[in-house]
Amino acid sequence: MKKLLLIFITAIFVSCGNKQSELTETRKTVLVELSKKEILNRLKSPSTAKFVDSTANILKLKSEDTLSSYRLTISVDAENTYGAMTRNKYMVIFKDQGGDSLSANNYKVTNVFD
């Protein structure tokens, strides 16, 4: 009986952990797509852009108010003004608007740095 109870409790913890991981990955996907749109608007030749998604990194920033902020860094290869392919790293800061955390409409871009 104790073994059965232990297995049941372990299964609950494992399933909860997987759900949190899925939510985090979905939020990352939303923020990466929003970042790509914002960065493409800033490039000299957006049609040549190739994003290096494997370099995307999200960090939740400390905030003074109750709404969260996130910093996403991502690299992009694109042609510059002279036609040479260059790799640049961008940092995009998002502010959570307090709605559905998996919706693109929930985040507002506050800054973009290259």
Rank of each mutant, 00 (worst) to 15 (best):
T29S: 09
T10R: 00
F51T: 00
C16Q: 13
F8C: 09
K2F: 13
C16T: 13
P46R: 02
R71M: 14
I9W: 02
T48H: 07
K44H: 07
V52L: 12
L61A: 10
V14L: 09
I7P: 09
L40C: 02
L5I: 15
L31A: 02
L5M: 14
K50V: 14
L72H: 01
S45Y: 11
L23V: 11
C16H: 10
Y70V: 02
K50Y: 10
L61Y: 03
S21G: 04
E22H: 11
A56I: 03
D53E: 06
T10E: 00
S47M: 12
I58K: 03
R71Y: 06
K2H: 04
S54Q: 09
D65V: 02
A11Y: 04
R27W: 01
D65M: 06
Y70R: 05
T29M: 10
K62M: 10
S15A: 13
L40H: 08
F51A: 01
A49H: 11
E64P: 09
L6D: 13
I7E: 09
F8M: 15
K36R: 08
D65I: 05
V32I: 15
K36L: 02
K37A: 05
L23A: 09
L5K: 08
T66C: 03
S47C: 07
T29L: 06
T66S: 14
I39M: 07
L5C: 09
L31Y: 04
T66L: 15
K36M: 15
N41C: 00
I7G: 00
R71K: 15
I58D: 07
R27K: 14
I58C: 10
Q20W: 12
I58Y: 07
S69I: 07
I9K: 02
N18A: 12
L4M: 15
N57G: 00
L40G: 01
T66R: 15
A49Y: 02
T73N: 12
L31H: 05
Y70F: 10
V52Y: 05
S21L: 04
